[in-house]
Simulated assay, not measured.
Amino acid sequence: MSGYLDDLSGHVSDSVKGGGTRRADAQRNRERILQAARDLVREPGELKLNAVAKACGIGQGTLYRHFPTREDLLAEVYRHEVDELVAAAPRLLATHQPLDALAEWFDRVAAYARVKRDVFAAVEAATWRDLAAHSLGPIGEAVELLLAAGRSAGGVRADAEARDVIVLISWLSRLDDAELDARGPRLLSILVDGLRAHHP
């Protein structure tokens, strides 16, 4: 059991330490798999699990232990991206003024939009509908956290709603890479300006 101490000596047993090392190795492998899949899903053609295993230098057996199917892997790539996006909101508010935090968060939204587009194009319709349904709540909560901080500070207009922002940023995932690079920053800048409170 994690944290089990040998008698009263205060020393963690070797078997527990070994288990902890194995868990840490497994977590590192999982992260490497997700990063490789995130990179490879952008390439033309169907994502191949053997290509993912080769890219991160692990055996296919190790990959299959983490992700038995291609859809399992792609779904987790998307969920991981959502988790990173959602976790960024409070971190940014801790170090930035609310409106600046919102602008920085929108920069991350552009990267999320690429992953969403590529993953949703590669999985079955039922899978992406399920992923979209489950990610809407956490992303909406992150947007509301940023907007609420901005409203409290007087920098964000009082009538701005999280749903408004989600509808507008959802269009980013419909753009190809060239258009996202060319238009994305400008579109997000326009959105920030539209959310800004205008004081007489």
Rank of each mutant, 00 (worst) to 15 (best):
A148I: 12
L147Q: 01
A153S: 12
A121N: 15
A110H: 06
E161V: 13
L146P: 00
H96A: 09
G140C: 02
S152D: 15
H96G: 04
L146Q: 05
V156N: 02
L92A: 04
G155L: 11
A103L: 09
D159F: 04
R157M: 06
A101V: 06
L102C: 06
L147W: 00
D118S: 08
V143G: 01
S152T: 13
D100L: 05
D164V: 07
D130P: 10
D107I: 14
V115E: 01
S135A: 15
A158Q: 13
L99K: 08
A160H: 02
G150H: 02
A94V: 13
E104S: 12
R114F: 01
A125F: 10
D118C: 07
D159R: 08
R163F: 05
R117N: 07
A103Q: 11
L93G: 00
D159V: 05
A149E: 04
K116M: 10
E144K: 04
E141Y: 09
D130T: 13
A158F: 09
V156P: 03
D164T: 09
Q97I: 09
L92S: 04
V165T: 03
G155T: 14
A153Q: 07
H134W: 12
Q97P: 04
L102W: 02
A153F: 06
H96K: 12
A162L: 03
E144Q: 10
Q97W: 08
A149G: 04
K116S: 09
L102G: 07
V156M: 03
G140H: 01
G150R: 02
A148S: 12
V119H: 00
I166H: 07
E141G: 09
V143E: 00
L131F: 02
L93R: 03
A125S: 13
A103G: 10
R114I: 05
G137L: 15
Y112E: 08
F106S: 02
R151Q: 13
E124A: 14
E124H: 13
Y112K: 04
H134V: 15
L168A: 10
P98T: 05
E124G: 09
V123C: 01
I139S: 03
L102Q: 01
L99H: 03
A122H: 03
A158V: 13
S135N: 09
H96P: 06
L131I: 07
A94M: 10
R117E: 02
V165F: 00
V115G: 00
E161P: 06
R129A: 09
R129E: 12
W128Y: 09
V143M: 05
D107A: 14
L99V: 10
T95A: 14
V167T: 15
I166T: 08
I139G: 00
W105N: 08
T127Y: 00
A133E: 14
L168G: 03
E141H: 07
V156D: 01
L168D: 08
R117S: 07
E161K: 10
A153C: 13
L145Y: 03
D130I: 11
G154H: 06
D100S: 13
A122S: 10
L168I: 12
F106C: 07
A153G: 12
A148M: 13
G150S: 08
A121S: 12
A142D: 01
L93T: 07
P98H: 03
R117F: 00
E104P: 10
A160T: 06
